[in-house]
Amino acid sequence: MVASILPLHLTGLEVHRRGKRLLGPVSMTLKGDGTTVIIGPNGSGKTTFLRALHGLERCTHDAAKWQADEETVRARQAFVFQSPIMMRRSVQDCIAYPLILAGQGKTNARAAAAEWAERVGLSAALTRPAHVLSGGEKQKLALARALIRQPELLFLDEPCANLDGRSTREIEVILADARQSGTRVVMSTHDMGQARRLADDVIFLYGGLIHEAGPKDAFFSAPKTPETRAFLNGDLLP
């Protein structure tokens, strides 16, 4: 077993853009297992937080402490964007691409891609151009592409936004499987039902700060602050 890149310790993580603070300061520890779900109103910083953790945002220097060197950390995590980015290639080549980047032979990579396509239910679409897929299929492709390198840590930014119930269910099954096989999942969602179904821990972001966080059961049954309560009730927050 390769040494883990987790836990991740954050100390005073901040993201600024054009002189405005979008996130932070955030201090917390991301432990090595389970699924963490980030919730919060629009503009509370969910996407920024995920992107900052994944290294896509310029943020406070030295705020994040991983358990491995940068190259390992970068190589062992993956990200699924809210609107999946489809390369102008076939479904199979899209899924295989991360393996090709990692130096695998084309034949191997394509075989592995076919396997992953099967797991996410895209077998029938293997040779189709990725960009003609439906929204749900694109999201499944993005998941397969993220999982094919078997990342230790997987980020997902509202993976089921704009998807119908059936696609959402299929994706949740894939995510539950990934968690079972030991992938650490960190995701954001607007769907409280989804949060309850998938989360081990919940983080409530509000105004760019962690307003409240804790294990799922305690969080949903006994929210500590009036804002969390209001948000969970579906009230509008100022």
Binding site: H54, L56, R74, F79, F81, I85, P98, L101
Partner: peptide, 8 residues
């Protein structure tokens, strides 16, 4: 974003 994320 994808290519950065894939650490290319």
């Amino acid at each position: 974003d994808l290519l950065i994320s894939l650490n290319t």
